[in-house]
């Protein structure tokens, strides 16, 4: 009986002392935290991909919480997109900028059929290494190396190497235009472009800057810098034997004409979606 009583007393004292210590420690080391930060972090996708330019979602939330109405406009989460930013803006009492939805686009169409392999690559599967040691299997110094560094870096599973063509394909629904593939590709073949009206967009699927004849030797669908597209639409610029279609060019207006008149087929256009494409 004595033992039980003394045990209860001893344990009670220990518990009380521990509680006291915990109380003072929590007082002493209390971290002042903006409750807004946590709230915003809840809204964000939580992928910590760094596409916004911050180290992770928490840092982005911090930046949002600190921002004023003007500097808030410079912050954008490409992964969450417009809907997420609207929620963040609501939480902070700002007005959200409406940005157009974007998607990553591969500026190369050097498929196995268009640009057959000329050499045998016998090294670890990495575009960055392959780029260092040679022009790659196709012989095109600016084309896709087909080894899929972009696939491995994509956190959203939006990229995959097509089994037949050998080049990566972007899954429009999964792509969040975080830009990881843009940074990873040693030849800078990816570009973040607006999805376009009804998902229709037109672009040059080539990055080769060699002279037309040289480029065509390696790849059937290389841009040869013939200037035909520039005559159709004055906004299009051709530099270093390579055409570039700015995002401002309306796909609906010029698209089909550009594709029809490109002699090599370097210009491609995505098909329009029948139903409502996106919100």
């Amino acid at each position: 009986m004595d033992i039980i009583v003394s045990d209860i007393i001893a344990l009670g004292i220990i518990a009380f002392l521990s509680a006291l210590i915990l109380y003072f420690v929590s007082q002493k080391f209390h971290v002042e935290e903006n409750p807004k930060v946590e709230e915003i972090e809840q809204i964000l996708p939580g992928a910590n991909c760094g596409a916004c330019g911050k180290a992770g979602c928490y840092n982005f939330a911090e930046a949002c919480a600190k921002a004023n109405a003007k500097s808030f406009k410079t912050l954008y989460c490409p992964v969450g997109g417009a809907s997420t930013m609207k929620k963040v803006a609501d939480a902070l009492g700002f007005k959200a900028e409406v940005k157009e939805e974007t998607v990553a686009v591969l500026k190369c169409n050097g498929t196995c059929e268009n640009a057959p392999a000329k050499i045998f690559y016998d090294a670890p599967v990495s575009c960055r290494l392959a780029h260092q040691i040679s022009v790659g299997q196709t012989g095109c110094p600016d084309g896709c190396l087909r080894l899929g560094d972009c696939v491995s870096v994509c956190k959203f599973g939006a990229l995959s190497i097509h089994p037949q063509t050998g080049i990566p394909v972007v899954d429009e629904n999964k792509c969040t235009s975080c830009g990881a593939c843009v940074k990873m590709c040693p030849r800078g073949l990816f570009e973040i472009r607006p999805k376009g009206k009804n998902g229709q967009r037109v672009y040059v699927a080539c990055s080769n800057k060699q002279k037309g004849a040289v480029a065509r030797k390696n790849c059937k669908v290389a841009c040869i810098g013939c200037m035909k597209c520039a005559k159709i639409c004055t906004q299009i610029k051709v530099e270093n034997n390579l055409s570039y279609i700015p995002v401002s060019v309306d796909a609906e207006e010029f698209g089909s004409e550009l594709v029809k008149n490109c002699p090599t087929g370097a210009i491609v256009m995505t098909e329009a979606k029948k139903e409502k494409g996106h919100d």
Partner: peptide, 8 residues
């Protein structure tokens, strides 16, 4: 067909 390989 020649082989491309990294060193060594």
């Amino acid at each position: 067909m020649l082989k491309v390989a990294t060193a060594p």
